[in-house]
Amino acid sequence: MSGSKGGGEDSSTTTGTEAPLLSVRGLHVAFPGRRGAAAARAVDGVDLDIRRGEIVALVGESGCGKTTLARALLGLVRPTGGRVTFDGASLAYSARALKAYRRRAQLVLQDPSGSLNPRHTVYDIVAEGLRIHGRAGDERTAVAEALARAGLRPPERFFLRYPHELSGGQRQRVVIAGALVLRPELLVADEPVASLDASVRGEILALLLRLRTELGLAALVVTHDLGLAWNIADRVAVMYLGRIVETGPVEQVLTAPRHPYTRALLSVLPEAPGTPVVLTGEPPDPSYVPGGCRFHVRCPVLAGGEAERAGVADACRTTELEILRGGDASQVACHWARADRPAAGRPG
């Protein structure tokens, strides 16, 4: 993969012994089915930790549950099972508790045009959080500092502008400034550069890395782009059909992927060697999660006979894998990846 690995520049920001800032255990989010249909298991058992100053990339195809998980972490969707812990305290869902929590954890959406009120000036957009949360102090100074940190300088030049007067990159910086003005400890960024031109994406990613360095911000970056994860993240969690199927340090996962799903996602990057792996069909309906390994109906390793040769084909079809634990360690939910195969058959 081309480009420098930005997420590894400040490895001192995380350690395996410090308590996570955000911790998720056994999280489930299900949505009722229509007309008596089975519930859609959008998030189906997830453990995840994010430490202070750490950037974690959550990757996977559209529809795999990434955005639902991100929203559940912020209390925007109430889990049907499991728990979310922030700074050692379980997340409570009263209006007062959620308001206090959202001063410390902020969401950055992928479409700045859709998340900015076209009738409000940049100043009012950024100041809105201060007004909602009743933060004391000089509002003008706080807005100017947030805009400057987001790369809009001199900030006063943007105060009276409206979103339609800004470029796409500038609008995304305004969204980030609106999150920064409350001085949060965690950003959850849902596809933060998906709607931007390629020339602007690198600038926004560099901004997120700088904010981590300058402010000690932690971040969960939701993306379908493994190239983005390579350039920004310390760790990566690969999600499929509501569950994390591979996780670990980003360089280890993306240079030596163990799960066939991760390998398929990586194979379609422009700089990837070999022939792209084309997965058949779409991810299954989350109302009807397949038995056994939830990836087995699309798995090229099973379809190609490699799982049979490794003696795990029956397990792939019938034996469900456990939820991967939180923490920093590399883990994979795959019978084939865990099988005792000859070295030449191992991925990577």
Rank of each mutant, 00 (worst) to 15 (best):
A194F: 04
C299D: 10
H224R: 14
D225F: 13
R338S: 14
R103I: 09
S287H: 07
C334V: 08
A194L: 00
L215P: 05
L130C: 04
G36I: 02
R201C: 14
L187A: 00
A303H: 07
Q110A: 02
S2F: 10
A144D: 03
G36Y: 01
V297S: 15
S62M: 08
E203I: 13
T255W: 14
G216S: 06
A329P: 05
T17C: 15
K5W: 09
P342T: 01
V143Y: 04
I50Y: 00
L130F: 02
V289R: 14
T121L: 05
V289W: 12
H133R: 07
A95M: 08
V332N: 05
R212P: 00
I204K: 01
E203W: 13
A307H: 05
A194S: 15
D328N: 11
D138M: 06
R71F: 11
G348P: 01
R210I: 09
V126E: 04
T247L: 12
A303M: 14
T275I: 12
Q331T: 10
T255V: 12
G36C: 02
D138C: 10
L180V: 02
L217G: 08
V238W: 07
A237W: 09
L27C: 05
R41V: 02
G129M: 03
V238L: 14
E251L: 07
V245R: 10
L302R: 08
A148W: 15
